[in-house]
Nucleic acid binder design. Structure first.
Lengths: 197, 197
DNA sequence: GTCTATATGTTGATAGAC
DNA sequence: GTCTATCAACATATAGAC
């Protein structure tokens, strides 16, 4: 077979697509979602501003690719958190902590999924990745709320609360990420054990 | 005395400063913080792009003015929420609900205070307005956590959780603002009554 | 698949007339 | 205090060469 990555004809590496995504993630992590511009990402990747258009239809398409990666990474992390215990309430607590940790450790992906402001309907693959993630969480919540709609409600409540702690950490209101994780976990525990039965 | 608002020499109303702030709030409410540009605010206010500079040093100064208004309005609303009951736990619950309601009803002010990304140190008046707000909340929390540091921690936790629900409403994850308010209040109740004593 | 060059639009900000 | 210029900077996106 031929080599998987042919020699670059221009003067670049074999995987510009990935290099652009990484640069974009850096930019978002540094300055928030609006800190990402295609032009600056090109500069960091060492290519001209025309190069991306062979890999992405436009600026939003790159963002959508990031958001999709973000959902997949969340599914991986939150799935692992859920699998780390059998106690349903503790599962929600660890999900909340993982939510905060993800926001801190992968701020670029985190903001790409939440604050990029994409027309989700224009990116079906993105909507599907989000739906897959939600399913994993809803499934876990079903142990606490057998009714599907109530399970979804619980996921939303726990996620919303955790999201707030994540936003506060990013904003620097919590000095310690660990502290914020613990608080988010605690809130999730209370919300999960709270009402119903 | 002379008339309070002299006749405009150009072709505009007597209170451009306010008109610009209102236009900016509209823009932020419509498209988020990055949806605000000085140029677009000028278009909506019906003045040239040079006009603002007689009223604000630069773009950030206008944003800072909005953020300051945002803190003051929060203090007004949250103060009223705290005063509406004597039960300390219920006070925190109503604060959380008011937080979500403020985000929904005054999204421009909400995002100006939280997501504008201002150098707070460059705007002392802004930092002071934020501090005043925090004091009101911390004071109320003292009934539940006599230790000042723990009281502050409780305020942060309740606010963080409420913030998440607010963000979820704005993002459209909660269809009903009322539902989100109720959930935020519930979470606040649990967090407040939760640990310590 | 990458480059150069370019078109086109937008922004923030300033100078100077009135 | 507002306007008319005008500027430099920067963005997204396309055409065409290699």
């Amino acid at each position: 077979m031929t080599e998987r990555k042919a020699r670059p004809t221009g003067r670049h590496h074999g995987d510009l697509r990935n290099a652009l995504e990484s640069a974009a993630l850096e930019l978002i992590a540094e300055n928030g979602p609006q800190g990402f511009t295609l032009a600056e990402a090109c500069r960091r990747a060492g290519v001209s501003v025309a190069a991306p258009y062979k890999h992405f239809a436009d600026r939003d398409a790159l963002l959508a690719a990031l958001a999709e990666r973000g959902y997949d990474e969340q599914r991986r992390r939150f799935g692992a958190a859920l699998a780390s215990t059998d106690d349903p309430v503790e599962q929600m607590a660890r999900f909340a902590a993982a939510y905060v940790r993800f926001a801190v450790e992968e701020r670029g992906l985190f903001e790409a999924t939440f604050s990029a402001g994409l027309d989700k309907s224009r990116y079906p693959a993105l909507a599907e990745a989000g739906a897959r993630l939600l399913l994993v969480l809803q499934d876990a919540a079903t142990q606490l709320r057998p009714d599907a709609k109530q399970a979804l409600g619980l996921v939303h409540a726990v996620a919303a609360s955790a999201h707030g702690f994540a936003a506060f950490v990013i904003e620097g209101i919590y000095a310690s990420a660990r502290e914020a994780e613990a608080q988010a976990a605690n809130a999730a525990r209370l919300i999960s054990a709270g009402q119903t039965g």
